[in-house]
Computed example of a mutant assay.
Amino acid sequence: MKRSRRTVLGTSTATLAIAISALILTAPNSSAEPVDTGKGGGTEEKGGGDETGIYAAARVQYSGAVAKGGGRGNVTSSDVNWTPPPCWYAPYLGAKDFKKKMSKDIESSKNAPGMTGHAGSAIAEVERHYEDEYGWTDTPGYKDYNVEKDGEGMFWAGVENPDEPDYLKRKSCTDLPFWVDNGEAPPPQYEEAITPELLAALAYQHMQLPDTKVTLAPEATTKVNLPTWAWLDEAVFDEIQATAAINVPGFNIQATTTAKPVSLKLEPGTEDAETYPASGECQINDDDSIGEPYAKGKSDETPPCGIKYLRSSGDGAYKLKATITWEIDWTGTGGAGGGLPDGTFGTTQDITVQEIQSVNR
C-alpha cells in the first residue's frame, strides 16, 4: 500500500508484523471451481462456510473455458512484464462472525510461546483496534468489532493467489481486515481491492485455450522439397470466453475475457526447412480461417501457409510446433472493459520427412 500506516506507538512495524502473522487474518485461497457462497450452519467448505456456519471469504468463481482443478490455464501472455495479481482484498466476514473469529485467534496468540514483550504488545494493540477504536495514521479503529452494523457490510481481508510465487504474495495485501458498507467501494488506499479489472486478469490466468492441431497436406508424412500446406478451418477456430465472479451479500461483480484467434505461427522443428510466408506467421483470413486447404491441381503452387522441409527426418520425426496468437479483451460489471495482452498457446505434432525415391535404369 502506498500510504502511511501501522505507525504504532511504542511498537515497531516489524514487531507488529510478527503479531499479525500470529493471527489468522488472511482469507482462504480462491477456488478455481464454481462454489455456492451462501451462508448457513453446517455448510461444507466448498459452500463458503465452515462447521460453525461462519461466512467464509468470498472466493472467485470461474466458469466457461477455464482450467479444471484450480490451476493456471495454458495461455501465455505475449507481454513478459504482465503478471496476474499475487493477492487481493475481498469480502470476508460479517461483524458478529468476525468478532467471534478474531477474539478466538487473539486469545490463542496471547498464549502462544514467544508472544510476550513487543509481540504481545502488538497483539494487544490489534485487539484495541477492533474493540476500542484504536487507530493509526489513516486507519480508524472500530467499536466492538462494528457489531452494531452487522448485516450492513462486511470486513474485507487479503486473499492470496495460489498460483503465484510466495515472495510476491508477501509484498502485498498485508493490511488488517477493514470494514466496507454494503454497496460502497473499499477506501481508495486499498489498491488491491477486488475489481472487475482484477477479476478479468484472474479469468485470463485461468483461461484454457484449445489445442492447436493444424491440418496438413500431405498429412503426417511428407517428402523433401515438397511444399506442405497448412490450415485451420474457421469452424474449429472460434472465440473462447472465461468468466470470473464474486457474489456475496451486498457485493456482486464479474468480468469476462474473450479470446479471438488472430494468427498462426509455424515452427518446423529444424533449421533445414522453409516456411510460407517466410516469417512463419500466417494471418487470419476474412472468413476467420487461417491458411488455405490443399486442393487437387495445386501441387505446383506455393501455399499461403505451410512448410517445405529440405532434409529427411531419417528414422525419427520433426516436431512441428503450431502456436496461435489470441487477441484478448474483457468486459465487466458496470460497463467496465478494455484490452489485455495478447495470449499464445502452442502444441506440437510429429512430421516424418522422407527422401524422394528414384529408380535408376
Rank of each mutant, 00 (worst) to 15 (best):
D163K: 05
I290R: 02
E267S: 15
L176K: 12
D233N: 03
M1R: 06
M207R: 01
T215C: 09
E131L: 15
D300H: 15
K308L: 11
G335I: 07
E191P: 00
W330S: 01
D150K: 09
A27L: 05
P187I: 00
G339W: 10
D233G: 13
Q241N: 10
A17Q: 13
F345K: 00
P165I: 06
E219V: 06
D288N: 14
A122P: 05
A119N: 02
L23P: 03
W88E: 06
Y318F: 14
N29R: 08
K308G: 01
G135F: 10
E239L: 12
Y276A: 02
T256D: 04
A217F: 13
G71F: 05
L25Q: 02
A200T: 09
V262R: 06
G120E: 07
D287V: 07
A259E: 02
L264N: 01
M102D: 04
P177A: 08
A255F: 03
P28V: 03
F345I: 08
K149L: 13
G42K: 11
G334C: 08
A200M: 04
V353T: 07
A242N: 05
V147F: 13
L23T: 05
G40T: 12
K308H: 01
V262N: 02
V126F: 07
E355T: 13
D175E: 15
S4V: 14
A17C: 08
E33G: 02
K110N: 09
L168E: 12
G250Q: 06
Y142V: 07
P165V: 04
D79H: 08
Y92V: 01
L199H: 04
A27N: 09
N225A: 13
T83I: 06
T215W: 00
P28E: 08
V35A: 01
D286E: 14
